[in-house]
């Protein structure tokens, strides 16, 4: 039970952080990515706020098993390219899309439905293959 409550609290912290930071607003995300236009650098401050705090947490719990340190391979980089394309097109990445689900209307719901379909498509096609370079089963937790 404490595990469930901790996960619930972590999710609530994450969702509140996304809304407060502006990440849940695709217009703001696209403005951050639009370095050649009306650039809004606000979202760099999200990473600047998040990374040191997360790093302290990872330091304190360093004994735990971290995700496997595999190779930087085509699968990792190819996935990042596809993700970047989608992120740039809509201004939504997975966390903010879920956080916006409750207040952003049908557009957020449509994006989330398509994202779930994309994940399902991955599991049906590439998901059964092992991760090159790690010898692990596919789809590690992250």
């Amino acid at each position: 039970m404490p595990r469930i409550l901790a996960a619930l609290a972590a999710g609530a912290l994450f969702g509140t952080g996304l809304v407060l930071s502006g990440m849940a607003n695709p217009a703001k995300v696209v403005a951050f990515l639009d370095v050649a236009g009306d650039w809004d650098p606000s979202l760099a401050f999200v990473m600047a706020g998040a990374i040191p705090v997360a790093a302290i947490g990872f330091r304190l719990g360093a004994r735990r098993a971290a995700p496997a340190r595999g190779a930087i391979d085509a699968r990792l980089l190819g996935g990042a390219v596809l993700f970047g394309l989608g992120w740039g097109l809509a201004g939504f990445c997975p966390g903010p899309a879920l956080a916006a689900l409750g207040f952003a209307g049908w557009k957020a719901a449509l994006f989330v439905a398509a994202m779930l379909a994309g994940m399902g498509l991955f599991h049906l096609t590439a998901g059964h293959r092992s991760v090159p370079g790690t010898g692990q089963a596919a789809a590690p937790t992250r």
Binding site: G22, A24, N25, P26, A27, V30, R75, L76, L77, G78, G79, A80, V81, L82, F83, G84, L85, G86, W87, L89, A90, G91, F92, C93, P94, A97, A100, F103, A104, K107, A108, L110, F111, V112, A113, A114, M115, L116, A117, G118, M119, G120, L121, F122, H123, A126, G127, V131, A139, P140, R142
Partner: peptide
């Protein structure tokens, strides 16, 4: 405040790319 400029077709394409790409790239 939330503004989503993308239309339905773009949202579907973007969602598919984000879903598939994030799983592929872990």
């Amino acid at each position: 405040e939330v503004r989503i400029a993308a239309g339905p077709l773009t949202l579907v394409l973007a969602g598919l790319l984000v879903g598939f790409g994030t799983r592929l790239g872990s």
